[in-house]
Computed example of a mutant assay.
Amino acid sequence: MGRNYYVFSSGRIRRRENSILIEYQDRDGKQQKRFIPVENVDQIFFLGEVDLNSKFLDFAAKNNIVLHFFNYYGYYTGSFYPREKFLSGELLVRQVEHYLDNEKRLSLARKFVEGAIHNFKRNIEKRGFDIVSKISEYQERIKHVATIPELMSCEAHARKLYYSTWEDITDWPFEERSMQPPLNELNALISFGNSLTYSVVLKELYHTHLNPTVSYLHEPGTKRFSLALDISEIFKPIFVDRIIFKLINLGKIKRENHFLQESNGVFLNDEGRRIFVEEFENMLQQTVLHRKLKRKVKYQSFIRLEAYKIIKHLLGEDEYKPFKVWW
């Protein structure tokens, strides 16, 4: 597995022999060049405006490099997803069958919500919040829902209870979840972190035989890889929420220093994004002893392992059990 690279500065990116050349201006306005050996690259996140051409995209595709693009405000705008190298007609048929069969679809969708609720409940249960028991009630209700909308309603109510603890955890105002645009600093952090997580999940799916457009919790649609949205629900409490708590409580992110107050919302500024990305990447590379494999596994690797479990479920080899954090 290669490295993740994050490009914050605006500039130009192109191929130079068997390397990636990034030309940009540093903070002092000086022109800089950076070479990255292509065999060392897994995915690149562009958080600044970049110029590139079809020759570079062809080079990236041949080397199975996924590119993710974000706009000036840190909004995820899209990914360059090379032509799929892992194709399985049988698995695609099984994916579609599980979507078309209401019972099978609901079973998988329920697992995604089950994992998500467990993981965000895990984030607060050691803090002594009484509200954990109320969240557990919704966790129990999802076992009995009959439709996807009912399931999503349970998840939404449980998440709202979860978010109600954030002001106590961070001592920052939150009020409620707002996305397009985020209306305060906590919402800006959540939106940016969720976009990064979605991007990483999408890249991990690219390295499996799963089709990322066939999903179960989120309705499949055009212009999005909705299976990545499904799986992201499980990992956002770990990859995003825990980072937010850490950065705020350690004073690394400050409301007065790291945000842009715009007429259309609140967004992380460049320095804020750098701080978040550094912590995000550090977390992805951390390892924990896997209970079943009996070896240390990177946080990022849990995503692909999750995809493999879904594949086994679709093929009828093993029932899917969602990832539930135990630490």
Rank of each mutant, 00 (worst) to 15 (best):
H218Y: 03
K236R: 09
H218C: 03
S226K: 13
L229V: 12
I238L: 13
T208E: 04
G221P: 11
E219N: 12
D230Q: 04
L229Y: 12
Y216L: 07
V240Y: 12
I234H: 03
E204R: 11
P220Q: 10
E233W: 09
V214I: 15
L227K: 04
F239W: 08
Y206K: 08
F235W: 08
H207F: 15
S199E: 03
L210S: 00
A228S: 07
P220C: 13
P237D: 08
P212V: 02
H218F: 12
L196V: 09
R242T: 06
V200N: 03
K203V: 13
S226Q: 14
L210P: 01
P212A: 03
D241A: 04
N211T: 10
S215E: 00
P212S: 06
S215M: 02
G221E: 15
L205V: 04
K223R: 15
L205M: 02
Y216R: 09
L196R: 11
S215Q: 09
L202S: 15
H218S: 08
H209M: 14
G221L: 11
T197F: 06
P237T: 10
K223W: 15
L229D: 08
I234T: 08
H207T: 13
K203P: 06
E204C: 10
H218K: 04
V214D: 00
A228V: 06
R224D: 09
V240H: 02
T197P: 04
E233G: 08
Y206C: 06
V201P: 02
I231K: 05
V200Q: 01
S215A: 14
I231F: 00
G221C: 13
K203D: 15
L196S: 12
S226H: 05
A228R: 05
S199C: 01
I231A: 05
D230K: 01
I231Y: 01
V240L: 07
D230R: 03
K236T: 03
L210A: 02
H218D: 10
L217S: 01
E204A: 08
T208N: 06
F225D: 14
P237C: 00
V214P: 00
P237A: 06
E233F: 10
S199P: 11
P220L: 07
S215N: 01
I231W: 10
H218P: 08
R224F: 08
F239Y: 10
E204P: 05
S215D: 07
D230N: 12
K236Y: 07
V214L: 08
T208G: 06
L227G: 02
I234L: 07
T222N: 08
T208S: 08
S232T: 05
N211S: 14
R224S: 13
T208P: 02
Y198S: 05
E233L: 10
L202V: 14
P220R: 06
T222Y: 14
Y216V: 11
Y198M: 05
V200D: 01
D241I: 09
I238R: 07
T213H: 11
L227P: 05
K203W: 12
G221R: 14
